[in-house]
């Protein structure tokens, strides 16, 4: 459905997109994950033919994407990062206005607008002006304006920024439902949990480059960390840290002044048992024990050496 090849975008000396390659298939929820400034939005804007780029090709629905590719644009819905609605129009009027840019027929449009309102749960607010809406409702209106015409491809650029957890969950559920109804979705975010929760395939970006891509599981398998074990309230004596490092599958041990032991292991069974057995053998008391499977942040951290969330 989307094919991007060798895309390069420079802002003077700064390389915003560095030979980016990307393929998205119909029916996917494709997540673009990366810290702020990693090039996610720039890639989207190039894809939408809003930004000039220095090199590369972009194809949407098998055709070269140009600013005047109106027949392609007709099949795309965009939910921009910043809320883009008219302050002077009610919720209904806003959705109707933007839907009207795609669907001229009034009767068809009315049906679509009503469906979008129901889909985003804005029924009770349709006569309200945007300034009367909470942050979460405003984000939902922003989404409704982008999806009302029921596009084949929906591009959502960080749609949950500054949204409360309840609204966020509602939005995420809605995105999955849109996909279930047949839309392909490109979803950019720097929230790894939500990308992991809804995306069928993920590309992790940093400094304009793709550093890894695949399903969440595939990405996690790419890294050494299979499990992170955190044990609180441990009083280790000299040499015991070194002993733990020598245990099978353990490749990194940190012991903090707060007496928290963090052990990183490769993927294997009974990692926790092995460590706890060692501590018991050594008569070392310990408190709470946590075992965490790797996250996308671990993937990012291991590949780039820095946290996904700065």
């Amino acid at each position: 459905m989307i094919h991007i090849e060798n895309l390069v975008k420079r802002y003077g000396e700064l390389v915003a997109l560095d030979h980016l390659n990307l393929d998205i298939q119909e029916g996917e929820i494709f997540g673009l994950l990366g810290p702020n400034g990693s090039g996610k939005t720039t890639a989207i804007n190039c894809l939408l033919a809003l930004l000039k780029y220095d090199k590369g090709t972009i194809q949407v629905f098998g055709e070269q994407m140009q600013p005047d590719s109106y027949h392609l644009k007709r099949q795309i819905g965009v939910v921009p990062q910043n809320v883009a609605v008219f302050e002077q129009m009610t919720v209904y009027e806003n959705i109707d206005y933007f839907c009207g840019l795609y669907v001229p027929d009034k009767k068809t449009r009315r049906k679509l607008v009503e469906e979008a309102i129901a889909f985003t749960g804005l029924e009770e607010h349709q006569k309200m002006l945007p300034r009367k809406l909470s942050g979460g409702l405003l984000r939902r209106l922003n989404i409704a304006c982008g999806i009302a015409h029921q596009p084949r491809l929906i591009i959502m650029d960080e749609p949950t920024v500054a949204v409360d957890p309840q609204s966020r969950n509602k939005i995420l559920e809605g995105i999955v439902e849109l996909n279930r109804r047949g839309s392909t979705i490109i979803y950019t975010s720097h929230y790894m949990e939500e990308v992991e929760q809804i995306c069928t395939r993920i590309m992790i970006m940093d400094r304009g480059r793709c550093i890894a891509s695949g399903t969440a599981e595939e990405l996690k398998r790419m890294i050494k960390t299979g499990e992170t074990i955190v044990i609180e309230g441990v009083a280790l004596a000299d040499g015991q840290k070194a002993d733990i490092e020598k245990l099978p599958h353990v490749f990194q041990v940190n012991y903090s002044e707060e007496k928290v032991l963090t052990v990183k292991c490769t993927s294997a069974q009974h990692n926790v048992v092995r460590i706890l057995n060692y501590l018991q053998e050594q008569n070392v008391a310990f408190g709470r024990v946590l075992s965490e499977l790797p996250t996308l942040n671990d993937v990012f951290l291991e590949i780039t050496g820095k946290e996904l969330r700065d």
Binding site: D68, V83, A84
Partner: peptide, 18 residues
């Protein structure tokens, strides 16, 4: 102008002729 407001950006990506 899409480089000046999100509203303009939203209009710019619509299939309406510039």
């Amino acid at each position: 102008r899409a480089d000046q407001s999100a509203l303009a950006l939203r209009r710019s990506v619509s299939p309406v002729h510039r």
